[in-house]
């Protein structure tokens, strides 16, 4: 089965968000990475001061956030949120 890309994709606009991570609050539970519907998050190479890998946006996917706020809702530590980009 071939998967076809719709021909009029360019006409469809989706809301854009910018993910902001408060790295020092993160405890590496991974919920945001698991739940992001666009799968744009991954663990950082770096550690935060508590010694955890915090989420970062994958390289090249900075414009992919659709402002659904799943990460913000699911984070138990209020360590991630998204801001709407107009």
């Amino acid at each position: 089965m071939v998967i076809r890309k719709p021909l009029n994709l360019a006409k469809f606009k989706v809301p854009k968000g910018r993910v902001i991570v408060l790295a020092e609050r993160c405890k590496e539970c991974g919920l945001c990475i698991e739940y992001c519907p666009k799968q744009i998050l991954e663990y950082s190479e770096d550690y935060n001061e508590k010694g955890f890998h915090y989420p970062v946006v994958k390289a090249g996917m900075e414009n992919e956030c659709i402002f659904c706020l799943f990460c913000q809702e699911i984070c138990p530590d209020f360590a991630i949120f998204s801001e709407k980009e107009e």
Binding site: P6, L9, F12, P15, P37
Partner: peptide, 20 residues
């Protein structure tokens, strides 16, 4: 529809077009 973040193929367009 304008704010919906999900784009999927439109059955009405036989999947050649998209919808939210």
């Amino acid at each position: 529809m304008d704010v919906c973040p999900v784009i999927v193929p439109n059955e009405f367009d036989q999947g050649l077009g998209a919808r939210k």
